[in-house]
């Protein structure tokens, strides 16, 4: 079976044209990034509002859990029957599934900011917006980005499932291979999808490291040391 996989990867036909690896990878990436951007634009402001004001937290957590329980395949097939367009159905489905982790991360990040720090900022005369952008957001950043990373993992996985309704991307290899029982193609699709997820996660981990202020990292490291000591 290793042989089949190697054969598939070394077959130059699989690297060219509309069904070639570069095209499929870029398509997959495209769906992921497009829905990530849309989901972020929707979820982050809501998360910031709820986290900053503390209003609607229960509703937010509750609805997040309901969306999380939505079965991907059911959602995407339902949307496809509704819109009869695989791109629209898939993107909406992906956005819906990416919103809860980003929302939860943003909200939880702001919740986790030490109350006394926010209190001190207020006591020094920072206005609401200054407090949010200069204090709460930088400190919350690790958890917010953790939510984004989770969303990306789910998007890569879900985009593969969404291929069922006729979407391009790496899911095609998995489903088309299954249909004709071409084991090499299926395994190649699985490997490529997993690799894409891992690479994107690594990229985001690097971004996270670059964006999170040094003092916040030090504080986290200090807290961990205290726990393990």
């Amino acid at each position: 079976m290793i042989g089949e996989i190697i054969d598939w990867f070394t077959n130059s036909a699989n690297w060219q044209g509309e069904d070639g690896v570069p095209t499929r990878v870029l398509q997959h990436l495209g769906y992921v990034l497009l829905s990530l951007v849309i989901a972020t634009v929707i979820a982050v402001p809501i998360g910031l509002y709820v986290g900053h004001t503390g209003r609607g937290g229960v509703l937010l957590v509750g609805s997040g859990n309901v969306i999380r329980a939505l079965p991907t395949l059911g959602l995407v097939t339902f949307l496809f029957l509704l819109f009869t367009d695989s791109d629209i159905a898939a993107i909406i489905g992906l956005v819906v599934l990416a919103i809860p982790p980003i929302l939860a991360g943003t909200y939880a990040g702001l919740q986790a900011v030490d109350r006394s720090v926010v209190d001190a900022a207020e006591g020094m005369g920072m206005r609401g917006g200054q407090r949010l952008w200069q204090i709460e957001v930088p400190i919350a950043l690790p958890i917010v980005l953790g939510g984004v990373r989770n969303a990306v993992l789910q998007l890569v996985a879900t985009a593969a499932v969404a291929a069922y309704v006729g979407l391009g991307g790496l899911g095609r290899y998995l489903l088309d291979g299954l249909a004709i029982l071409d084991y090499g193609e299926v395994a190649a699709g699985a490997i490529l999808t997993a690799l894409l997820a891992i690479v994107l996660d690594l990229v985001l981990a690097t971004v996270q490291r670059a964006l999170v202020p040094r003092g916040v990292r030090l504080a986290e490291a200090g807290a961990k040391k205290e726990v393990s000591a």
Partner: peptide, 15 residues
């Protein structure tokens, strides 16, 4: 493990 997409995991497990 958590990073590997579900569909990918489902199809490689048999092998």
């Amino acid at each position: 493990v958590y990073t590997v997409p579900s569909l990918a995991l489902f199809v490689v497990i048999p092998s």
